[in-house]
Computed example of a mutant assay.
Amino acid sequence: MTASLNQIYKAIGSLETSVMNLAKAIEVSDKRASDSNKRADQHRAVIHKRVDDLVGEVGDIKTSVETMKEDVADSKVVTDEVKQWKQRGVGALFVAGIAGTAIGGVVVGFIVYWWEAILRAIRAA
């Protein structure tokens, strides 16, 4: 019976050592999981901060775009007015060009028609 008690004690000691090793392994695993969770929490906090910053920036950009839309609308009115001035100026130049051409044609026609009389008047003088 002593031999069998020694074997039982040996088996119990072996089981006790195995249980302690398992407890240590579980403890190490829990510590790793805890560290991993802490790092994940920190990473998520950083990501959330970045997203919050981006939301703020997008809001600022949206406000800037709305302001620019108003400025562009005002600028469009001025631009349209300047285009009208340009069109009127081009029209006036066209009319002046036609008038100048007509006057030049009349003068040339007058000179051609009266050329002989003009030459006689110059020679007679």
Results as ranks from 00 to 15, higher is better:
Gly104Met: 04
Arg120Phe: 03
Ala96Phe: 14
Trp115Asn: 07
Val77Asp: 09
Ser18Arg: 06
Tyr9Met: 15
Ser36Met: 11
Trp114Val: 01
Ala45Thr: 10
Gly109Arg: 02
Ile103Ala: 05
Thr67Asp: 09
Ser64Ala: 15
Glu116Tyr: 01
Gly100Val: 03
Thr17Arg: 10
Phe94Arg: 09
Gly91His: 00
Ile118Met: 13
Ile122Val: 07
Val51Trp: 01
Val46Cys: 02
Val106Ile: 11
Ile122Lys: 02
Gln7His: 14
His43Ser: 10
Arg88His: 04
Asp71Gly: 06
Ser14Glu: 15
Leu119Val: 10
Val46Thr: 10
Gly89Asn: 09
Leu15Asn: 09
Phe94Asp: 12
Ile98Val: 13
Gln42Asn: 12
Ile103His: 00
Val28Trp: 07
Gly59Ser: 10
Glu57Cys: 02
Val65Ala: 14
Thr17Tyr: 03
Lys31Gly: 06
Ser75Leu: 15
Asn21Gly: 02
Ile98Pro: 01
Thr79Arg: 14
Val82Thr: 10
Gln84His: 08
Arg120Gly: 00
Glu27Lys: 11
Val46Ile: 10
Leu119Ser: 02
Val77Trp: 00
Leu54Trp: 02
Ala73Thr: 14
Asp80Ser: 11
Tyr9His: 15
Val46Gly: 02
Leu5Val: 14
Asn37Gly: 11
Met1Ala: 15
Arg44Gln: 10
